[in-house]
């Protein structure tokens, strides 16, 4: 039996429909599994009893979609092999957790050591894990993060707006929002329309991050249009109109937002660093963080093939299954 602990699915969650997509693939392959409630690290409603009541066997498998979950400490003693998917590492490169968790120890080293095998979303992520924790060398495997591309199909027919350039990264510190504003300013001056697509209302963003207030006011002033998408459907519709999508991330293990933009036909522009060269064509990468190169790429618009199919749910779940010895 495979015990599968997925993600909580919500409109503004970057994990998209991960849990549903993995389930579908498991069903399609006739692999017996039991879906357990996700560990909700945002609230107090952790269904501890349900987890603890399970009596697993030696030949069972446990798959934790978020390897950092405190749940691994709770379930480590249970019989069966444990697998965890790493989506970020706090010891490296400004993972948002370092700001959210503050000085609290999330016991990353200990938690990761409890797994029999650790999956990473990108080769870059694997390198970061191994650089921080060399003792995990024999346990770490690159798998990717599964994307359900089928859900984007209805939006692929939406006509592109040639002058529309979009940022769909989080408007957060590790995405260099100050540079995003400068780039937007330069692009608007060149005659482009620039939007930032967000799942969070600007007023709520201002309340959540007071440090962003002045930048959001500045964005309004220069004409960088923040579009609040209340639903995923609305977001995908707006994203599908974009001709170019730019990211200025200074920390990213695998950006779902850029992958979905590429699938919807946008031309990506990303830094030649971190995970980006793993799936964005060399011609669409800029020397980090050269503003002139970014503007030049936005004007040239190189149409190239980007290897995002490696992140299809079919391919990635195949790898999960193989690595868990279920295939």
């Amino acid at each position: 039996m495979l015990y599968f602990i997925g993600y909580e699915e919500s409109q503004d969650n970057w994990t998209g429909n991960f849990t549903e997509a993995v389930q579908e693939e498991l069903v399609r392959r006739s692999i017996p599994f039991r879906l357990l409630p996700p560990y909700n690290w945002r609230g107090p409603s952790m269904p501890l009893r349900e987890y603890l009541r399970i009596e697993s066997r030696d030949d069972d498998q446990w798959f934790f979609s978020w390897a950092h979950s405190p749940l691994i400490e709770l379930l480590a003693h249970k019989k069966g092999r444990k697998y965890g998917l790493v989506v970020g590492v706090t010891t490296f490169h400004f993972d948002p957790l370092i700001f959210v968790q503050g000085e609290n120890d999330i016991r990353e080293s200990h938690r990761l050591s409890l797994y029999d095998k650790i999956f990473t979303v990108s080769h870059w992520c694997k390198r970061c894990v191994l650089r921080a924790y060399p003792f995990l060398k024999k346990k770490v495997v690159h798998t990717g993060f599964p994307h359900d591309f089928d859900i984007y199909e209805p939006y692929k027919q939406i006509a592109k707006e040639p002058d529309l350039i979009v940022f769909n990264q989080r408007f957060a510190l590790e995405r260099l929002p100050v540079l995003e504003l400068e780039i937007a300013r330069m692009l608007i001056k060149c005659g482009f329309r620039v939007q930032h697509l967000t799942g969070t209302d600007c007023e709520i963003m201002k309340q959540q991050s007071p440090s962003m207030v002045s930048l959001l006011c500045e964005a309004e002033q220069i004409g960088l249009n923040f579009i609040h998408n209340a639903t995923k459907d609305q977001y995908h519709r707006n994203l599908a109109k974009a001709s170019v999508v730019i990211t200025t991330a200074i920390a990213d293990m695998l950006p779902a937002s850029l992958i979905e933009a590429i699938y919807l036909g946008a031309i990506p522009i990303a830094p030649r660093a971190f995970c980006f060269p793993e799936f964005v064509h060399y011609d669409n990468l800029y020397a980090p963080y050269d503003l002139r190169e970014i503007i030049a790429l936005a004007e040239m618009r190189p149409k190239r093939h980007h290897t995002i199919k490696q992140f299809s749910k079919e391919t990635v779940v195949d790898t999960f299954i193989r690595e868990m010895g279920l295939g």
């Binding site: 400004f94 510190l173 590790e174 260099l176 929002p177 100050v178 540079l179 930048l215 200074i250």
Partner: peptide, 11 residues
């Protein structure tokens, strides 16, 4: 400060 790209400075 953020306006001075402090994260970029640390990187």
């Amino acid at each position: 400060t953020q306006e001075n790209l402090h994260i970029f400075e640390v990187y």
